[in-house]
Amino acid sequence: MNIVGVSACTVGIAHTYMAQQKLEDAAKAVNDQVKIETQGTIGIENELTEQDINGADIVILAVDVKIAGEERFDGKKVVKVSTATAIKSPNKLIAKLHELAKQ
């Protein structure tokens, strides 16, 4: 499965990157393709391209704040959770994305 997403926390530092890493590790563990954009205090990193988004089966938004460019995901299956959920239960979250992508 091909997953793209965005992580962003209220401070824009620690939880943003922790959520990104946990999601990437969990997705790769089940052989998914994954790319997570981060939006934080230093701006947007690992920015998703239109091609990334178009090729995605599902979008995960692990965010605690409003993000820039959320409209890019219109028409896609989007799951929104807190960064805490992504950090604490990444494997369950990836399993849930698999279920939702099949619907």
Rank of each mutant, 00 (worst) to 15 (best):
2 N>S: 07
2 N>I: 06
3 I>Y: 05
4 V>H: 03
6 V>P: 00
7 S>K: 01
8 A>I: 06
9 C>S: 13
10 T>D: 00
11 V>A: 07
12 G>Y: 01
12 G>R: 06
16 T>N: 05
17 Y>T: 12
17 Y>N: 11
17 Y>R: 11
18 M>S: 08
20 Q>L: 09
21 Q>F: 05
21 Q>P: 01
23 L>C: 08
23 L>P: 03
25 D>F: 00
26 A>D: 01
26 A>N: 01
26 A>T: 06
27 A>F: 02
27 A>C: 02
30 V>W: 00
31 N>E: 02
31 N>V: 09
32 D>G: 04
33 Q>E: 06
33 Q>Y: 05
33 Q>A: 13
35 K>G: 08
36 I>Q: 01
36 I>Y: 00
37 E>I: 10
39 Q>C: 11
39 Q>L: 11
41 T>D: 04
42 I>M: 13
43 G>Q: 10
44 I>R: 12
46 N>P: 04
47 E>R: 14
48 L>R: 01
48 L>V: 06
50 E>I: 08
50 E>S: 12
51 Q>A: 15
51 Q>R: 13
52 D>P: 04
52 D>L: 07
52 D>A: 09
53 I>L: 10
53 I>R: 13
57 D>W: 08
58 I>F: 08
60 I>K: 02
62 A>Q: 05
62 A>G: 12
63 V>K: 09
65 V>K: 10
66 K>N: 14
68 A>I: 14
69 G>Y: 08
69 G>C: 06
69 G>Q: 07
73 F>I: 15
74 D>C: 11
75 G>K: 15
76 K>S: 14
76 K>Y: 13
76 K>E: 10
79 V>T: 14
81 V>F: 07
81 V>R: 04
81 V>I: 15
81 V>D: 00
83 T>A: 11
83 T>Y: 04
85 T>A: 12
85 T>M: 09
85 T>R: 07
86 A>C: 10
86 A>K: 03
87 I>Q: 08
87 I>G: 09
89 S>T: 13
90 P>K: 10
90 P>R: 12
90 P>W: 07
91 N>I: 11
92 K>L: 14
92 K>W: 04
93 L>V: 12
94 I>S: 06
95 A>W: 02
96 K>R: 14
96 K>V: 04
96 K>S: 11
97 L>D: 02
97 L>H: 09
98 H>S: 08
100 L>M: 09
101 A>M: 10
101 A>W: 05
102 K>Q: 11
102 K>L: 08
